Simulated assay, not measured.
Amino acid sequence: MFGRLGAPEIVLILVVIILLFGAKKLPDMARSLGKSARILKSEAKAMKSEGQPTAPTGPAPEPQDQPAAPRTIQAAPGDVSSARPVAEPTDSTQR
């Protein structure tokens, strides 16, 4: 009964959605839905890789004379408004 949706039913559903929410709010809703999907995907990927041991894939990088650029922490993927610099810990054992 409800298993088969044809083109006319899908068009009718889309028209009802546009009438309910209005054409102005639909792009914002789609944008926030996409952002939520990206966050969910990255979290699922992180959970999947959390249980696996990390193995080095190549030789260790050699230290360079140039200082590294400061790292930043982001609240969510793509969220640049809440990024903040991270202070790197200093190693006092090396001179």
Score class of each variant (00 low, 15 high):
A44Q: 08
K48I: 08
P63E: 01
G34M: 05
P67V: 08
A46Y: 11
Q52V: 07
A46I: 02
G34V: 00
Q64I: 07
A75S: 09
Q52S: 13
P56D: 14
K24F: 06
E43R: 08
K45N: 02
P61G: 01
A37D: 06
S36F: 10
I73C: 10
Q74C: 07
K35F: 10
Q74D: 08
Q64S: 14
S36I: 08
L40T: 12
G58Y: 01
Q74E: 13
A37L: 09
K24W: 11
E43H: 05
G34D: 01
D28Y: 09
E43L: 13
M29T: 06
Q74V: 10
K24V: 12
P67S: 02
S36V: 05
P53T: 05
T72I: 06
A60P: 12
Q66T: 14
A60N: 12
R38Q: 12
P70A: 14
L40M: 14
K25M: 10
K41H: 12
P59V: 07
K25H: 04
M29V: 10
A69N: 09
E62A: 14
T57S: 11
R38C: 05
A60V: 12
E43V: 14
Q66K: 15
A30M: 11
K45H: 04
G34P: 01
P70N: 12
S49K: 07
P56E: 08
S42K: 14
R31S: 06
K35M: 06
T54K: 13
I39K: 08
T57R: 06
A68H: 00
M47V: 09
E50R: 05
K24R: 14
P53Y: 03
T57G: 11
Q64V: 04
A68R: 08
G34C: 05
P53K: 04
I73V: 15
P70T: 13
K45P: 01
A46K: 07
D28F: 11
R31F: 07
T54L: 01
P61V: 02
A76E: 13
A46R: 03
P67K: 07
A30L: 14
K24L: 15
R71G: 06
G34N: 04
P61R: 02
A76W: 00
I39C: 12
R71N: 03
T57Q: 09
L33V: 06
A60F: 14
T57P: 04
A30Y: 03
